[in-house]
């Protein structure tokens, strides 16, 4: 039984929920079992936001993640809060343009991506989240980059067609980035 539990955490406004939704839709389109659980309430209006995504080849039990296989940390408080929870052998993706700290663990694989800076440099300021998602899909053994265009097509509403290209650009930047 293969189950991948992904915890995405950061500030409200960083697209935390959207990146989770992207991963959930990708799972859906690949016929895996998925669950997506957002934090809701005041944190949606600023403050910390997080999102639990579970991808599995069997029905998902609890949608609440207590020990993630993958942590995406988009700010320092999130990294500090969840770094200890990641399962040994798991992966941590760190937005290193917002987080100076290094992960002090030997038993996990850590990817440092200056995603916010990269997004700014490319003029796609709000898409740091998708750069990290691109990097995750390329580097996680259970996930794959292929098929992202279909997911973008599905998730970006026709009214915002211009965003499709920008999302693809962000995903590709993340895929091609050499973090280590």
């Amino acid at each position: 039984m293969k189950t991948t539990e992904i915890l995405i955490a950061g500030f409200g406004g960083q697209g935390i929920l959207f990146s989770g939704k992207f991963l959930a839709y990708k799972g859906l389109m690949e016929d895996t079992q998925v669950s997506w659980l957002p934090s809701y309430g005041p944190e949606m209006r600023g403050g910390t936001a997080n999102c639990n995504v579970i991808l599995s080849d069997s029905p998902v039990g609890s949608p609440i993640i207590t020990a993630p296989d993958v942590l995406i940390a988009m700010n320092l408080p999130s990294l500090e809060k969840y770094v200890g929870a990641v399962l040994p052998g798991g992966q941590i993706y760190v937005d290193s343009s917002l987080i100076d700290a290094k992960v002090d663990r030997e038993d996990v694989e850590v990817f440092y991506i200056p995603a916010t800076q990269m997004a700014k440099d490319e003029g796609i300021g709000s898409l740091a989240n998708m750069i990290i998602v691109g990097h995750l899909l390329e580097n996680h053994p259970e996930l794959s980059f292929s098929g992202v265009a279909e997911v973008v097509e599905k998730l970006v509403p026709p009214k915002k067609a211009a965003l499709k290209e920008l999302n693809m650009k962000a995903l590709t930047l993340g895929k091609d980035y050499k973090s280590n």
Binding site: A24, L28, V34, S35, W36, L37, P63
Partner: peptide
């Protein structure tokens, strides 16, 4: 409950 209300599943 709030969790089942807010979560997404296929």
């Amino acid at each position: 409950d709030g969790t089942i209300g807010q979560m997404m599943e296929p």
